[in-house]
């Protein structure tokens, strides 16, 4: 699943570039998403970009909304829905 982590961190970097913000380094599991250089709109764009890349949007698929706080939680959600 390292591939998924790479895709997500690359997408975070690209989204931040597009939004003209700096990404906090290093991006680790404990990194708080909204402190990583993305605001809530950036986060929405990140999810939409990943949907293009991965073919699914876990936030549409989930029955109960879950809002990940850290990068680790975020990746875990993508891993969980990738298995379905």
């Amino acid at each position: 699943m390292e591939n998924l982590r790479d895709k997500i961190t690359t997408a975070i970097q690209e989204t931040a570039d597009m939004r003209g913000t700096e990404v906090l380094r290093p991006l680790v599991d404990d990194t708080v998403l909204l402190e990583s250089g993305l605001d809530s709109l950036g986060f929405a764009i990140l999810v939409a970009r990943l949907e293009e890349d991965l073919g699914y949007d876990p936030f549409v698929l989930m029955d109960m909304p879950v809002y990940p706080r850290t990068l680790g939680e975020f990746i875990e959600i993508y891993q969980r829905y990738a298995l379905q």
């Binding site: 809530s40 709109l41 986060f43 929405a44 764009i45 999810v47 939409a48 949007d57 936030f59 549409v60």
Partner: peptide, 10 residues
């Protein structure tokens, strides 16, 4: 508009 589960639309 493109639908977004996070902010409604992008």
């Amino acid at each position: 508009a493109r639908k977004s589960a996070i902010v409604g639309c992008l």
